[in-house]
Design a binder for these strands. Sequence first.
DNA 1: CGGTGTGAAAGTTTTCACAGCG
DNA 2: CGCTGTGAAAACTTTCACACCG
Lengths: 236, 236
Amino acid sequence: MTDERSHPPQAADAPSDATVPKVVVSRLSLYLRELQRLVASGQQTISSSQLGTLLGFSDAQVRKDLGFFGQFGYPGVGYRCDELIRAMRDILGTNHAWSVAMVGVGNLGQALLGYRGFGRQNFVIAAAFDADPAKVGQTIQGIRIQPLDELAATIRDHGIRLGMIVVPAERAQEAADRLVAAGVEGIVNFAPVTLALPPHVQNVGVDLAIELEQLSFAVTSKFARAPAEPPGRAEP
Amino acid sequence: MTDERSHPPQAADAPSDATVPKVVVSRLSLYLRELQRLVASGQQTISSSQLGTLLGFSDAQVRKDLGFFGQFGYPGVGYRCDELIRAMRDILGTNHAWSVAMVGVGNLGQALLGYRGFGRQNFVIAAAFDADPAKVGQTIQGIRIQPLDELAATIRDHGIRLGMIVVPAERAQEAADRLVAAGVEGIVNFAPVTLALPPHVQNVGVDLAIELEQLSFAVTSKFARAPAEPPGRAEP
DNA sequence: CGGTGTGAAAGTTTTCACAGCG
DNA sequence: CGCTGTGAAAACTTTCACACCG
């Protein structure tokens, strides 16, 4: 497959040095998610203001965000959905598949093993580990649970670069240490603790109770900031 | 129980009007989580710089964040953990229990029904709904699955104010509409779509694949910003 | 001392507004 | 036209630095 392209969309040659704010990257994921939905429903092109409206952002913000990475639009037309999707996947690194190692296969871990959404974005849970001897050896959602002793070897053999921690809070730091020792470069942590990690290991924490706490605050507090203006459903 | 207090910590009488940035509130939750761990391990007081170090923030940031809500510290001493925990819970609104309605009881929903972490922060899943007639009537993790028809009545009868959407993407907007119609004030959405909601309904989205995407970017991209300086585990 | 609370400065992100293009 | 890309301005957040306190 050759790369025949007419003109504008230059994914590469962006402000090449610039370091991009995290918040921009998180919006990128939302743009990508929405674009995928749009192509699925047959839409070919979209303008920054349409896309912004769907997600509750301004048109300027959409354009600025994309501007960090290059020029993807056609003046007077907007963005071609399929092209933009491809560009965003290149940027996010999800045009190729990622293998992920899961540590801890309890309630939540098992649910995540069965979650189809990962595969859709090119993430594959390639190995799963648990400390409980009763679980080791079982096959859940088509994946065989291995003992923790095998973690380092398996991760190295499969060239796994990302880990997912789904153990109880008390065991999370130990799990992280093992993943780091095995050479993992990034960790998603579902345990409700802050991990101590070397600076070259990236990490994202997901604390389910904290998400509810944030809602509790937003719903109750006189200090809560009014939401800018979310997509649709407003009343006059 | 009377409220006998010696002097400083004035939870109320903060800069009373000020509207607080979301990012500050999200750090509040992290402070609270860490403080709870500290008391559990017997620590009585903590300084802003200790707390900051544990979480990867500066001491000034910790103090500024708390400063939005009042004065909680003792110069020369720091903060008394138990007092600060109580103050933070007041701010976040989790000194009283919250009932939550769950819509969608698949893989992930069932795992969340069994998650102990919610209860620990005072959230109780008080009702669960599913469209699948095969599931309706079953009792999972001690909770009886109800049909969607009963959603509005149950939510009103129990005075439920928060909802959790755990249905597939295609059904998420419908689930949200039902929750809103029933009078819910805030929604945590685990489906990978952006919901259209009236502005008086708060919402927090949790997209598990997006969390991995963010890691993928951070691990791969030349555009990724170097992490400020995470807690511990650095090498010289 | 060791530590908080807080103005003022520095830095970052968002919004504005408009030239330029197909 | 309608819409992008982008400097410049505005808004917001973080860091600094220091008075003050027990």
